[in-house]
């Protein structure tokens, strides 16, 4: 475990840069992590991030399907907002653990 200064605050992160304590997350932290990922956050991004945070805080699993059914974005838009690996990027920016594929 390490700490990293993000948006002027010391934040606990793991070796991949995911927050280890979701309560340390702020919009400023998100904006800065997003910048590192090459993403400029819009209101739509934040809606998705809030949805993800709520899901994770409730102990529910995250899937691209679930986000596509959220009513906020469809799966295609989700890909456009977080290009490449949307679930990995979105969770990193949302300050929650990286989803594990458990098969």
């Amino acid at each position: 475990m390490a700490t990293k200064t993000i948006a002027g605050v010391n934040i606990n992160v793991n070796e991949e840069g995911y927050l280890t304590d979701p309560s340390e997350w702020t919009r400023e932290v998100a904006t800065e992590i997003a910048k590192e990922e090459g993403i400029e956050l819009t209101d739509k991004h934040f809606e998705v991030l809030e949805f993800i945070r709520n899901k994770v805080m409730n102990g529910e699993g995250l899937t691209i399907r679930g986000i596509g059914k959220s009513g906020i974005v469809d799966a295609k838009t989700f890909y456009q907002l977080f290009p490449g690996a949307p679930l990995k990027k979105a969770t990193k920016i949302a300050g929650v653990p990286k989803p594990v594929s458990c098969i």
Binding site: T63, I64, R65, S101, C102, I103
Partner: peptide, 8 residues
Amino acid sequence: AELPYKCP
């Protein structure tokens, strides 16, 4: 198509 699936 998608995860999870039976007998990975």
